[in-house]
């Protein structure tokens, strides 16, 4: 039972982690908390839905369609909107991402309607049994994709010029600019990557929670929580935070029955306790105190 709960917790945790990484990529280079993320994810996932069910295209096409939409959305958000609000404080830009989210929600409503839609699983078939633990085939796919993404990002930040430029920008924008890094371009790329990653996660989440205009926002909130838990500036932290949050959620089943309806409260309380002990999150950089 416990092993089962942990395993399925890890599966949903991987999805939170993927979403969380998308948030962090944007936050690290631009310091903007992208609260339109849920809607951007929703929109991209609907593209996949449309390709799949309206045009009956194969899954691979839908998959890459969603990701392409996410990448494009990221570029449009940054270049088309945020760059126009030159030197606006991040609190204002945060509001702008909310506004963009509303616009996307409205457009999605016009195109795809307001009702909840089932989203097909990529891999169908009965669950697998592994030493008394049941694994959905979909969960295997989730683990695979999440693992691949983690490796790819790790390799990118470690070995490619682009990844190093992104890291430099995240650490010190001014210094990065002086070193000849086009900080604006890095921001756009971060937006594209971040929203694209959300799209990827969205396609994997939708079969589980179904797809409608607002559901992805709830997933986003969890991603924010996961990101904070792990330390908002750390990608490995996002993974740890996401997995931990997924498992923690599942383990709330052991709470006394009387407290069971207060699951969210309990999860947040745990997060706050963790943060009280480590104010910068599990793997975040210590909060700098300048004199």
């Amino acid at each position: 039972m416990l092993a089962q709960l942990i395993l399925s917790g890890l599966a949903s945790g991987s999805l939170y982690a993927m979403m969380a990484i998308g948030l962090i990529l944007v936050y690290k280079t631009t310091h903007i908390l992208n609260f339109g993320y849920g809607d951007m994810t929703m929109f991209s996932t609907f593209i996949a839905y449309m390709l799949l069910t309206w045009y009956k295209l194969p899954f691979a096409v839908a998959f890459f369609g969603a990701i392409a939409c996410g990448l494009l959305l990221g570029v449009i958000v940054d270049r088309g909107f945020l760059k126009l609000a030159k030197d606006a404080p991040v609190t204002s830009l945060f509001i702008a991402t909310l506004g963009i989210g509303m616009i996307l929600e409205a457009v999605a409503g016009w195109i795809w309607g307001y009702d909840t839609k089932p989203f097909p699983y990529v891999i169908k078939g009965p669950p697998l049994f592994l030493g008394g633990v049941v694994i959905r085939r979909h969960d295997l796919l989730v683990f695979g994709v999440a693992g691949a993404i983690a490796l790819l990002l790790f390799a990118m930040f470690k070995f490619t010029d682009l990844g190093i430029a992104m890291r430099a920008t995240a650490q010190n924008r001014q210094a990065a600019r002086l070193m000849g890094i086009d900080v604006g371009k890095i921001a756009t790329l971060s937006w594209a990557l971040g929203v694209g990653l959300g799209a990827l996660a969205g396609v994997l989440i939708a079969p589980i929670v179904f797809l409608d205009l607002s559901r992805m926002i709830l997933v986003m909130i969890k991603a924010v929580a996961a990101a904070v838990l792990g330390g908002f500036t750390s990608l490995p932290g996002a993974i740890v935070g996401g997995l931990l949050l997924g498992v923690m959620e599942n383990l709330t089943i052991y709470m006394p029955a009387a407290l069971a309806p207060l699951k969210t409260t309990f999860v947040f309380l745990l997060i706050i306790i963790v943060l009280a002990i480590r104010p910068q999150g599990l793997l975040g950089e210590p909060v700098g105190r300048r004199v």
């Binding site: 908390l33 929580a225 904070v228 908002f232 207060l262 706050i272 943060l275 104010p279 909060v287």
Partner: peptide, 25 residues
């Protein structure tokens, strides 16, 4: 209590949790 330890986005999440808790209770 969290605000004495947390800054910026970490505090924002604590407040978000507070709002969620009230809405749930």
């Amino acid at each position: 209590v969290p605000a004495l330890r947390l800054t910026a986005i970490y505090l924002a999440i604590a407040t978000l949790g507070f709002g969620a808790a009230v809405a749930e209770i």
